[in-house]
């Protein structure tokens, strides 16, 4: 499979991931506990997506892995604050 096909699949997966996150988050809008779990799941998904993406591009480094972990954690905390938890 061509590199461009891999990329298309990767970005489609990311797009689906964030859309599913947004829809599930909306669906659970009156259930804070569910929203926390959904956000945690989305953050983990994002970190894994980043790691796979860079691994497939053969440029995964510890620094890049840490960047995805930090971005996932930051976003999770941001939502947690908004939920008033």
């Amino acid at each position: 499979m061509k590199q461009s096909s891999y990329k298309l699949i990767e970005y489609t997966m990311l797009l689906f991931g964030v859309i599913i996150f947004a829809l599930s988050f909306w669906q659970s809008r009156h259930h804070v506990g569910q929203q926390i779990i959904i956000t945690a799941g989305a953050a983990v998904f994002y970190v894994i997506w980043g790691l796979v993406h860079h691994w497939m591009e053969k440029r995964l480094t510890l620094e890049i892995a840490l960047e995805y972990v930090l971005m996932g954690a930051f976003t999770f905390l941001l939502v947690l604050i908004a939920l008033g938890v």
Partner: peptide, 15 residues
């Protein structure tokens, strides 16, 4: 993209 979707979700879906 990830951050924007998260912020938009917070604005629209946090009660």
């Amino acid at each position: 993209a990830f951050l924007l979707v998260a912020i938009a979700s917070v604005m629209l879906s946090v009660f």
